[in-house]
Design a protein around this nucleic acid. Structure first.
Lengths: 228, 228
DNA sequence: TATACTATAATAGTGTTACTATTATTATTG
DNA sequence: CAATAATAATAGTAACACTATTATAGTATA
């Protein structure tokens, strides 16, 4: 917790960038407009060349911050999950009751920002949408294993593990806390995608957000188990 | 059911191919070796050029079967879900008991083939792995909505809907049958991916397959609900 | 046997992507 | 004022995802 609060800046694996984009004006413009462009065009159509044109800068200058488009996505994903972790730890640290703690955690993970104040040039709403649409692409690659070894997914994994611990705290005997945690985090994104593009495949609506569905899904599996 | 059994051939949206690849020797080689190559190289590194070289044919000839690499993936996905649907309907149609039916359905959807006999030149094990690694890429695009309108995801959607109906049959009052169905199908793939690449994020192991975890997950939510 | 037609192959070419390399310019600091 | 660092400009590369055109081989029909 202390690590998190002493500095609000989200600490990201240094191998994901060549020069810290938060440390200069150009770097911040890259983040801000990069997010905007991926949001608008999708990750496939987004290029460093287009981004350079947009911010009145040069493609080659962007490459001095990020080695590749793929690392840029990994950077954004780390930032997103780091920010989730921050919210989660901050919102639950003073709560004693494990069940209460878990409910709040699920609420944070499964509901898309909106109400959260921006504490940097990173637009949270857009970043959330980017994660819904693009996060899977950051790990569904032939290089996952080596990139995982490099620690590029460390923050994400820490979040899954944190949520799993909260699940376990509510039911010490539940055998699938990790799977349930990863399912909630994944479905938190996926159900939003379905709402936007395949509404016939989900019961979630702007009124009934995934939060409710997933909270019930989890709690029904704790302390009163059905054994197959 | 009759539609399914009258012909074992899986019927795929005709807009997904220019010439039916199952109708010629070259077409079948494209499918067979295309699957092998995507399995080996991943979808990104796979190209029609490489496939042409491999099968001693020409890039341009492959383009006479599939308009694009993306449509080839959509074709494979349709084939995969069509085959799932076939297995599911076939295995459950004679079962009366809704609970029994549902359990069998979840078993089929969440367990990777292996035991299933190939009834075409399509290798089911490889195709399953391809779906685990690449299926998300078929819909996480800027073109989802228009492609959805064209019916490119029809079989997948039908499967989600079928499973949702089976869930509903076990508990008529459950409010999130569609979301639960889509979650099971998604997690069926995702938990396998985690087993292979992020074992610390799942409790599933070759011994304890996702089937068990997901069956419990579903059944714990039916008929004895916790209300948030 | 000639002809017509189809399937496939060969060849070439296009615009774009995701970079890399080199050099020039501008801004900052000692 | 010189040295250094950051950024920009320019050019180039190999590969990708196609498209277009022409050639060839095989089969079917008149």
């Amino acid at each position: 917790m202390e690590q998190l609060k002493q500095s609000v800046k989200i600490v990201i694996n240094e191998k994901l960038f060549l020069k810290d984009p938060e440390s200069s004006e150009l770097g911040r413009r890259i983040l801000q407009h990069g997010i905007q462009m991926i949001y608008d065009l999708g990750f496939e159509a987004f290029t460093f060349k287009k981004l350079g044109d947009r911010i009145g800068s040069n493609e080659s200058s962007i490459y001095r911050y990020f080695e590749s488009k793929h690392k840029f996505l990994l950077y954004l994903a780390s930032w997103y999950w780091g920010w989730m972790e921050y919210q989660l730890v901050f919102a639950t640290h003073s709560i004693e009751q494990p069940l209460e703690k878990l409910k709040i955690a699920i609420g944070i993970i499964t509901k898309p920002s909106k109400e959260d104040s921006n504490f940097s040039f990173i637009n949270h709403d857009m970043l959330t949408t980017i994660m819904i649409n693009e996060f899977s692409k950051s790990y569904l690659t032939k290089e996952v294993d080596s990139e995982n070894k490099e620690g590029y997914f460390a923050i994400y994994k820490r979040l899954v593990s944190r949520l799993a611990k909260m699940i376990q705290a509510v039911d010490h005997d539940y055998k699938n806390a990790l799977s349930l945690s990863s399912t909630v985090i994944e479905s938190g994104l996926h159900q939003h995608f379905l709402m936007d593009h395949f509404p016939s495949l989900t019961n979630c609506k702007s009124a009934t957000l995934p939060t409710l569905y997933l909270t019930e899904l989890v709690l029904n599996n704790l302390n009163h188990r059905y054994n197959v």
